[in-house]
Amino acid sequence: MTTRFSKRSQMELLGLAFVVVLITLGLLFYIKFQAAKQPSTAKKTFTESQKASNLLNSLLKTNTYCEDATLTQLLQDCAEHKVPSSQIDCDGYTSCEFANRTIAYIFQQTLEEWKNDYFLEVCLWNTITQQCLPDETLFTLPPLTTGCSGQRESSSQFIPTSSGVLKIWLDICY
């Protein structure tokens, strides 16, 4: 009699253990799928891509203090005449220096305020190899950086100059 009761209770305990195992498995599956689920990036993708392209377009159109020239004109002059002297004189600065300082100021007021890391490169572009010509990088911002380490949203513009095609490349890292 005692053995029969003991066997029955053992079976019940086994059933209970089975239910616990099932629930645990379900929980594990759920946690696994929840962890793999990516959070919605609709806004992030939209704002970052719009930021990069709008920023570059607006930036190049902007008229500066230097003879009212646009940043596109300053960069063109910078590529065509480079150092030590440029055709456009900006109160003692060359067009390269003035363009660099103006872009750095605008980035400080925008991307740095919004806590965005960025990488800007201005270089003469080899249209055949689709790369910057060696030693023809006019400047990078922040100086001496090589690009984003993680994900990025990019935008680029090409400006024709008498020295070749000038490429302005902006990466917003996130």
């Binding site: 806004k43 704002t47 719009q50 930021k51 709008n54 920023l55 377009n57 607006s58 930036l59 159109k61 902007t62 925008t110 919004w114």
Partner: peptide
């Protein structure tokens, strides 16, 4: 609220 900045000319 959500804040969205857009660079413009």
């Amino acid at each position: 609220s959500v804040f969205t900045p857009v660079p413009i000319s």
